[in-house]
Design a protein around this nucleic acid. Structure first.
Lengths: 349, 349
DNA sequence: GTGAAAGCGCTAACAT
DNA sequence: ATGTTAGCGCTTTCAC
């Protein structure tokens, strides 16, 4: 380990002032090209790798870092198709403006005096899908904040028309005149176990996203005279295959058997299709399945998945553009797009 | 925007010293619980959200951040299956030790005096797959570095037995006694266009990973008496569907047509299968295809993909464990695992 | 258990 | 075009 060099050491050695060294690195126009070259080579020879980033940002107040607080663990978010496309959009704009991306898990919100506190070094913060982490009393180290997929205080937000999308896909599915509908809902309750809901009053406390999708399903149900009792709704505690598959098995054991599964995510829907097929039944002939999100796995699956596409990459872009102030600072709601594929095709009627 | 509060402001207001406030936040054992509570509530009331992170790390020399320098843009890496599983492993360990993850694209390496410089605030750095970015003369702000998928200077590294894996999958495929073999190689040349290689001498300058995989293919070819002329190797400039599909089309236009495609990534292999099928040919009956990486899309595809699995999550875990010093600091080479599926099944012989 | 003071490494305002 | 200097906000001895 080499002894740590500072601007001062280098300045002393070369025989110029610290300001000049600083300028050589950060403001080329403040000195002659010749001197700058000389300084840079000397620094390299001495093993000085440039200004210390912490000191520089203490001084300037900027870090070139944008933080994204993820609702789940970092390891989950980075492989989840929805979250990773969101990060793709974020990364795209950040790349363009030469910012770096700091990923923080919701667990970084240290509890301090009962209220969570985020210790973080950055020029702005994106709060992504924190709906079920209750940012009540969350203390942020900056006012430069954008929320995504939920709203909080007066911060600008990027959200998606979940209700409208759900209404659209449900209406499409209901055109097949299903006899019995089951809903596989994501995080409908606080509970960590898979279960059927008892009554729809339980839903009030649910995550905004799931609640909006549920409302959309109900909008369509009312319009088209379809009945979905609360007890036909399953609570899937996490958006992972295992839980979804289990819930689908449960739902398919109802008698009479549901012939339409409305799923609140594509991952759930894909697991549901597998559950249906494992029972020796056919999709869409015996059971129709629809999802939500529009992940690419749904397009390649056999049968391919009918779903609602949300523009995750665009969501990420918008969030960063808002944060960096290159665009309007007002909240935005993105539209969705119905994608009709094999798992629930166009009806003949 | 509220005026920015500092420790000093808060101390003055409450009537204690700055040290006490600092202790209240960072060293609870240094003061009475009662006073700590009082201070914390007062701070909350005043709107002081805790110590400034830049100042703290200037003072302490630690940041709680680990940086990962990605070979591509952030937006690409976060959706690429191989890179994102690597990040999953990285995130897992980081989550456990309460570090945060800073994503840097290779573009953050600012050119300064001809040699790249990384301005970065963190406790350690992972250089991921920088093979084709030539870290010659790269200047790093820390000595706490681990390289992944390549080696550089004396830094400890996590690598994969690419040659062994390639040898294994090629040997498996050659058991089918192919008449003609084509290789779809990833970044075999510096060129940005798809093309056939002229002679194998071109390969010396290629990325280490591709070169090792190529050597593995050749090991198997020699053992089993298969001939693969350099002109049967295609250079795919980026690991994306479009290029891979195009290269596969080219390769399949050879006469006699290749009946085995050795692909250097699963993405390339999946695109190749599609190209084969689009020509009205069957996999594996008419053309056999093998990949490399073991991404999950390969398992669900029809036909499913025969490939070499590399343990990307484990790769990420190991890299971080090395960096944080919770494990041996020596370089590690991970094994691979042959996965035989439909696109190139077990041969009868 | 608490306070005073030095200084982490740098940048920006001002002087020369 | 280059030098001088104050201080960014915090932590940490060291006294008390």
């Amino acid at each position: 380990m080499v002894a740590k060099l500072t601007l001062k050491d280098v300045a002393a050695k070369i025989g110029v002032s610290t300001a000049t060294i600083s300028n050589a690195f950060s403001r080329p126009d403040q000195l002659s090209a010749g001197l700058r070259q000389k300084i840079l080579s000397e620094c390299e020879a001495m093993g000085y790798y440039g200004p210390n980033a912490a000191a520089r940002s203490l001084r300037t107040g900027r870090t070139g870092i944008i933080g994204v607080v993820l609702s789940d663990r970092i390891s989950y978010s980075v492989t989840d198709p929805v979250a990773s496309h969101f990060l793709e959009g974020v990364g795209e704009v950040l790349d363009r403006y030469h910012y770096n991306l700091l990923l923080l898990s919701a667990g970084s919100l240290e509890a301090g005096n009962g209220s969570a506190r985020l210790s973080f070094m950055g020029d702005g913060l994106i709060l992504y899908g924190l709906q079920h982490c209750q940012p009540h009393g969350l203390r942020l180290p900056t006012k430069n904040v954008v929320t995504v997929d939920f709203t909080w205080e007066d911060f600008p937000s990027v959200t998606v028309d979940n209700r409208g999308g759900a209404r659209q896909v449900a209406s499409h599915a209901f055109a097949h005149k299903p006899n019995r509908v089951a809903v596989l809902g994501l995080r409908m309750l606080e509970d960590a176990r898979i279960q059927r809901l008892r009554n729809s009053a339980d839903l009030q406390e649910t995550t905004p996203v799931s609640y909006q999708r549920w409302l959309g399903f109900m909008d369509a149900a009312e319009n088209l005279g379809v009945d979905i009792p609360a007890s036909n709704i399953w609570h899937v505690p996490e958006n992972i295959h295992h839980y979804a598959y289990q819930a689908a098995r449960d739902a398919l054991s109802l008698r009479p058997r549901p012939d339409l599964l409305l799923c609140m995510s594509d991952r759930i829907a894909l697991a549901a299709i597998q559950a249906v097929m494992r029972l020796g039944l056919k999709v869409p002939e015996d059971v129709k399945v629809v999802g939500f999100d529009g992940i690419s796995a749904g397009a390649n699956f056999h049968p391919s998945l009918t779903t609602v596409h949300q523009f995750n990459v665009e969501k990420g872009r918008q969030a960063v553009e808002m944060l960096l102030g290159h665009k309007h600072k007002d909240s935005v709601q993105l539209d969705t797009e119905l994608i009709i594929r094999e798992s629930c095709p166009e009806s003949d009627s």
